[in-house]
Simulated assay, not measured.
Amino acid sequence: MSQPSSRPHLTPQFCFNQTALRDFLRLSRSTIDDSITQNLNALHTPSRSPFNPSSTSTRSLTPPSSSRQIPAETCTSFKQKVLFPSWASRSDVLDYCAGVATSPDPDDPDSVLRQIEDAKVRERVVDERLDPYSARYFPQEARTESLAMLMRNERTVEKIIRSRTWSLVGERCGEGGSVDEAFDGWRREQGKGKR
Rank of each mutant, 00 (worst) to 15 (best):
S77L: 07
L27N: 10
S111F: 02
K159S: 09
R155Y: 03
S30D: 14
P50A: 06
S67M: 14
R26Y: 12
D131A: 06
V121R: 07
V121C: 07
R22Y: 07
Q38G: 06
S86V: 04
Q13M: 02
L83M: 13
M1R: 09
Q80V: 04
H9F: 02
S54G: 00
N39F: 09
E117H: 03
S57P: 00
R124W: 00
A182L: 08
D34M: 12
S6C: 01
D105A: 10
P139N: 06
F138N: 06
G177R: 10
P8Y: 11
S6D: 06
E175K: 09
Q38M: 14
A142Q: 14
S86C: 06
M151I: 15
T11Q: 02
S67C: 11
I32K: 05
Q18E: 14
C173M: 08
Q115F: 12
P64T: 07
W186Y: 13
F138V: 08
S66K: 13
D105W: 15
D184C: 03
R90C: 08
N17P: 00
S47P: 07
S67Y: 03
V157P: 01
Q3E: 08
M149C: 06
A72Q: 11
S103K: 12
A42I: 07
S134G: 04
N17M: 11
D180W: 01
A182D: 02
K194W: 10
E117Y: 00
R7G: 05
T76C: 02
A119H: 00
T62H: 04
P71K: 14
R90Q: 12
G99R: 05
G170K: 12
I36V: 15
W186S: 04
M1Y: 13
R22K: 13
R90A: 12
V93W: 09
G176P: 03
I160C: 01
T58I: 00
E175T: 08
S111Q: 10
Q18P: 01
K81H: 10
R114C: 03
S35P: 00
Q190R: 15
G176L: 15
R90D: 14
L150F: 00
S111D: 05
S57F: 12
S167W: 08
D131C: 02
D180P: 03
Q18G: 04
R122N: 09
A119S: 09
S103I: 10
R136Q: 09
F16I: 07
R129Q: 10
K192I: 11
S103V: 07
V100R: 03
C97M: 06
T11K: 02
G176K: 11
M151L: 14
P53W: 01
R48A: 08
D23N: 13
P132G: 04
P104D: 11
T165D: 15
D127Q: 09
K120G: 01
Q13F: 04
